[in-house]
Amino acid sequence: MSSRLSVNKTYKQFVGGAFERSESGRSYPVSGAGGQLLAHAVQGSRKDVRDGVAAARSAQTGWAARTAYNRAQILYRVAEVMESRRDEFCAEVLRAGDGQSEEAAAKEVAGAIDRWVWYAGWADKFATVLGGANPVAGPYFNLSVPEPTGVVGIVAADEPPLIPLVSRLAPVIVSGNTAVVLASERCPLVAITLAETLALSDVPGGVVNIITGRRDELAPPLAGHGAVDALDLSGCGPDLGADAARQAAATITRVVSASAAERQWAEEAAQSPYLIDAFCETKTVWHPKGR
């Protein structure tokens, strides 16, 4: 019987396009559905959050300046690469999940891939649907366009491991925002595998930054960071959510959280152009019409 010792993956955080350990040097054990140790994930620190925001901030202008067609192709590329690594994602979801069936895991991965495809198509359409010309009562051309708000902090929900993250991340970045994600505390590993996929998909470094660790510790500094323009706190419980929202209020940062309907993660109700809009600013430009 030939046995081969497997080569285990080290799961690192994803910041500025690089996979790194925490500056704090900390890690924490992540267990699978059966209680077995899967890996030691990085236990990120406030400074890692800060570095993530800095990376997101410096990547944002360039990402937003890409053509919508280009962002569409990159998001579609994410779906292509995930599709090619479907088995890996299924295995990862299965290991991490709370006793999901293989069938459920496969369905979740397929749903996550399809969600990227769905949002990829919105890149060059949402401005048409959400913006437009306003017929003002005067000799003016008046146009409203949704623009990315900037850097978005996302606290990902725990369960199931993959599709909630994709469902909240894709609408954020499709418009040109960059993101700092606090991965699910309980199931962080698949988020890092997703990061590997992003790194292979021409998503520029810094557009998505994924921090793993303790939500209680990391969500408040993320929410209170002055350079964060909007927050998705779908993964925060009531107390943490309230605390983070208080932090956000200090810098007039809007807070979004998934509705009950949107938490039917596999359903169509979980995806919407209005979720793109939630992380956009409407900019309205006036110009006189004269000879």
Partner: peptide, 17 residues
């Protein structure tokens, strides 16, 4: 900025966000 006035300023309209 949410409102950009080009070659005008302080214009408001109910149809304009």
């Amino acid at each position: 900025a949410g409102v950009v006035w080009a070659n005008t300023f302080n214009r408001f309209d109910s149809a304009s966000p």
